[in-house]
């Protein structure tokens, strides 16, 4: 094993290293540094060790209870929107035309919500849902529903969820549509010959063939919904009470509202870690699902 030793290679890696250091490593280390300290302003810092982390994971403290409660809300939110958006996206993709000019029309309409900036989406729904002037809020109230996302927790959640479904179902639908388009016609023809019902075609051909894109869709939607900030912040501001305060909103409150840089840094590190772990789990599951294990052939 004669390896050519070429120290010049280090110089070639250096620029990338420098860029990554400035863009990622240094800021991250700053956060790590903050997370070990406490500050009362004036650029004065006091060493706190792992104190913030202990508090963060202890529900009996203020910081811990706020973090764990918002984390719970985040998980519930992600679960609900996945449960709605994935099946809905599949249904939308299945009902889209397969060819002709209508395909382009459908694709553009589906892509529209994805192109709107997040805070604009929030603003749209904030106004849309207002009981006094919003089309949705006013209509619902006129129909006799006591709908008010500012004062009612359930209404606030419903609004945020419907908003997310409106914003992101398209993504799932587009991914599924791409998966469906890649199924060769021969499969449908064979299914016709085999006398398969619509449901059997879905179960035996379409769903298995969409497997991969569905995993990608679930991953993307989970990550995005887990990090959600802008839309609920604009619509509900995290309220009423703390009912729609997700981890990211809590984080901003602590960091910028209370200027508790140490607590916020510890929280963001843990938050980051959770996302990394979930990402890794998904990635592993996905790559393993795609691996064709060599068939064991014997006999015949």
């Amino acid at each position: 094993m004669d390896k050519t030793i070429n120290q010049k290679a280090w110089f070639l890696v250096l620029p990338v290293f420098a860029v990554v250091a400035f863009s990622a490593i240094l800021p991250l280390m700053t956060v790590v540094n903050y997370s070990m300290q406490d500050t009362f302003g004036n650029n004065q810092f006091f060493w706190n060790g792992v104190g913030w982390f202990k508090e963060l994971l202890d529900p009996s403290t203020d910081l811990g209870s706020r973090f764990l409660a918002s984390l719970g809300r985040n998980l519930l939110f992600s679960a609900i929107i996945l449960a709605i958006e994935v099946p809905l996206g599949i249904v939308v993709a299945l009902s889209m035309p397969r060819e002709g000019w209508t395909v382009a029309v459908c694709l553009v309409i589906l892509a529209l919500p994805l192109l709107i900036p997040w805070n604009v989406v929030g603003t749209i729904w904030q106004i849309f849902g207002r009981p006094d002037i919003g089309l949705l809020g006013y209509t619902l109230n006129s129909l006799g529903f006591d709908y008010n996302y500012v004062s009612n927790e359930f209404d606030a959640w419903a609004t945020v969820i419907v908003m997310d479904v409106w914003h992101w179902t398209s993504l799932v639908a587009l991914l599924c549509y791409a998966g469906l388009k890649s199924i060769p016609d021969a499969y449908y023809q064979a299914a016709q010959i085999d006398g398969a019902s619509r449901w059997a075609v879905f179960k035996a051909i379409q769903l298995p063939k969409m497997n991969r894109v569905l995993l990608i869709a679930v991953l993307l939607r989970f990550m995005d919904s887990f990090m959600i900030y802008t839309e609920p912040f604009v619509v509900t501001g995290g309220g009423p009470g703390n009912s729609t305060t997700f981890v990211s909103i809590e984080l901003v409150k602590i960091a910028l509202g209370q200027f508790d840089l140490g607590k916020a840094a510890a929280l963001s590190l843990v938050y980051n870690l959770i996302i990394l772990i979930v990402c890794w789990v998904f990635y592993t599951v996905m790559t393993n699902a795609g691996v064709e294990r060599p068939a064991k052939q014997g006999g015949a």
Binding site: P184, A186, Y187, Q189, A190, I193, K203, A204, I205, L207, P208, K209
Partner: peptide, 12 residues
């Protein structure tokens, strides 16, 4: 019944 040029099997 018809058999096609390329194998069509139900994956699952």
């Amino acid at each position: 019944a018809q058999v096609f040029q390329f194998p069509v099997i139900y994956d699952t």
